[in-house]
Write a protein that binds this DNA or RNA. Sequence first.
RNA 1: GUGGGAGUAGCUCAGCUGGUUAGAGCACCAGAUUGUGGAUCUGGGGGUCGGGGGUUCGAGUCCCCUCUUCCACCCCA
Length: 432
Amino acid sequence: MKIPAVKGTRDFYPPQMAVRNFIVDGWKAASLRSGFEEYDGPIFEHLKMYQVKSGDEIAEQLFSLTDRGGRNLAIRPEMTPTLARMVNQQIHALPRPIKWFSVPRLCRAERPQKGRLREFFQWNIDIIGAEDVLADAEVIFCAVDYLKSAGLTAKDIVVKISSRKMLASLLEAVGLEDNQLAGVYAVLDKKAKIPDEAFEAMLQETLPDAAIRGKVRKVMSAVRLDDLSQAAALTEQAKAAVDELKRLFDLLEKMGISEYVQFDIGVVRGLAYYTGVVFEIYDRGRSPRALCGGGRYDNLLSDFGGPKVTATGMGMGDCVLEILLREKGLLRDGDLPTRKLDYYLVTADSSLGQKAVELAAAIRLRGRRCDFSYKGGNLGKQLKQADQSGAAKVIILGEEYSRDQMLVIKDMKSGQQAQAGWEAFLTSLSGA
RNA sequence: GUGGGAGUAGCUCAGCUGGUUAGAGCACCAGAUUGUGGAUCUGGGGGUCGGGGGUUCGAGUCCCCUCUUCCACCCCA
């Protein structure tokens, strides 16, 4: 019986695994460059963990199970609840700011489509316990630093930044009630993603009052931060939020990434729990795709039963990123070796097979990567295998060895050959 | 969850309006080639034509169901 792979999952054969490692290694290196520490948690949690933030209906969008003790569990669809749980548990012992990152494997029971699968990897970085926008700036910097290191330029991507705090105070200033905000956010978040008429219809449904609707449209038409700070009717709160954003942009400029970032009042994020700076990183291509999203969520820890501690962070999935890197020619099949052999051993005479095994083991014990042919065969065949293995050098055990105990070491790129005695060769490895 | 396209060898695909034992390129294995790799030539293995049912003398080809995949929606932590 042939059993297929589960819908929306990927098999990572060595070439795909090399791609995955390439991406994950880049994420980790960028995180470490910015001083983040790596953590991880279990791949499943209590189902309730995911219902706290998103309501009971979320259960339909994730993979859940009941264990033999009757506990309702779910495979993690996101990392943030686990992070909140872990940080809450040790909140009084951890030095702040807490700068942590993780690359969890996540599962969501959604319909798979381009750039979206049921199982994927997501880079998460979070800074907990730092209220200042400096923390938001660091999160954005780290994400941009990675994307730059992958070869993407300001022509390829853009970080669009806004602030929930600012938007809330602006909307309240034009007459919206507190309890209307969540609904309006959800609509505004759609603006760039749906046709204008559809957006108008949605807005009209949420805000029946035409006068208020007009004011909301006016607020949302702001292109630059200065448009807002010059507006007359700025409340104290709104002014503070605008100033905070200005400071964020100052910091990003000092960090040297101003060409990557821009203010965009249209970035709202659908999620209810953001409380301050919000941002999304987009591919500048024909159909804008979000590569990454994040923002400040100051209530998260308290939502999970902990103290009120501020937090900001972001998540970046591997699927869309890989598509973009391929489109930009920054990632090509065959570019990434599945193993990086230092040496490949070949024998000119099958009687030297034992010697090859002995030498291979000695090379490996000295920390070098080494492999040899199981099949033997003539030298031409074995050299072909050596070539396909991608090894930098080939060591030939042949006449020279039988006669003079000499190894022939061939550089596969230049084709040049040199000879060395067994012990002398091994000694040269120990030294390096 | 809704709508549309597509599933033929490991991969990319061909297979005309239904008609003998289903093909190509690449990949893989072997030989030419028992002392030097990327090339060439020759040969070989490998397919219940995604699965099930139906129509027919006869189905890769037509019809229905189902699975998978891609695209557009819905959703998006």
